[in-house]
Amino acid sequence: MRKTLLTFLTLSVIASIIYSCQNSDELKQQIYYTNGRDLYIKHCQNCHGANGEGLGKLVPPLTDTVYLKQNKQKLACLIKNGSDTTVTIHNQDYEGKMPDNAQLFDIDIAQLIVYITNSYGNKQGMYKPEQIAEDLKNCK
């Protein structure tokens, strides 16, 4: 009886170690997500809304999963430099101007992108600051 209990305990310890190793990436993503949400509330929520719903035809919503997926490499430029070109979201043209957020660092932008692309119906996983640095080199 005692032997089975010990074997069971050892096995479960080993299992949980393996499990937590696999989860360190996930944990990092969760930290990015939480920090990203704070940054979102501070820099984005006024216009894009608490639920990413946008504002009428003035501000585009962040619920177009297809747009966010197809334009993921352009999001860093959009957030950092703003935009004054028309975007089409859910087949609706939005022609307003988006202000820049030049003060944000690469890691902030990475956290914001992780938050946005994993909220409001999006589920795109992790995005790293190194990828942001790469994306920002290709800004138009």
């Binding site: 216009c47 504002l55 501000v59 988006m98």
Partner: peptide
């Protein structure tokens, strides 16, 4: 109209 700080929130609520 070009305000991106408090105005969108105000008008979202007013709407």
């Amino acid at each position: 109209t070009s305000c991106t700080t408090i105005c969108p929130t105000m008008h979202r609520n007013m709407k």
